[in-house]
Amino acid sequence: MNIQEALLEYCLRLGDNSLIIGHRMSEWCGHGPILEQDIALINIALDHIGQARNWLTLAGELEGMGRTEDDFAYKRDAHQFRNLLITELPNGNWGDTIMRCFLFDTFNFYLHQILQHSKHDGIAAIAEKSLKEINYHLKYSSEWVIRLGDGTDVSHKKMQNALDDLWMFTGEMFEADEVDNLMLEESIGADLQQIKEAWNDYVREVLEEATLKIPENNWFQKGGKQGRHTEYMGYILAEMQFLPRAYPDAVW
């Protein structure tokens, strides 16, 4: 793999993370427990989709084959997506959704904090822009984890269950492969080990305040970054890609 190929992969991973978690969160539209929280989740979903558009547009420019953001979003099959598995899991209940957001937002926050200083101008620009938004996402999910974890017996139990279920999907975020290593060597990408330490510190602090117990399980699922997805991915694409596949010439 050469640097150009790794760079394209790297942008697709960033774009696909945003696109898929953004799509998942958009499924809450009209289903939030109360109006304010419905609106909040949809605002965050919109940020993710906006960021995905920037990353996938950059991917198209880097590839130089004329592919647009829409081509990447609507004309790839599951194995061509590079998002982390944690982003594609079903929403579950409100607590599951909030916990997933919290675990991912923390990672996303530290990742973008590093990427805003990337040697690659395009990556640095998108990261700097996105970081301001991610800051709000992390604030939001952290506050809810604490409120629900340290809440009633029922909310505490639901949050602990969510954490137990999602924990095995957190390891993949820090698992560096050839793409990550190449990008790190070039000072384009982030050091996942550095992010892991910051992530651990912050997640532990918030979970402690939320009176939640970190699972002892150290076996982690992986594969999303390389295109090996869960069975849920096909269902996401079936919904997300239906319109442009059924009506290829449809315009807004």
């Binding site: 304010e36 929280q37 609106i39």
Partner: peptide, 13 residues
């Protein structure tokens, strides 16, 4: 503050 997220992305409620 009622919510960090309001009627549009740039506003809080």
């Amino acid at each position: 503050m009622l919510s960090q997220f309001g009627s549009t992305a740039c506003k809080a409620l």
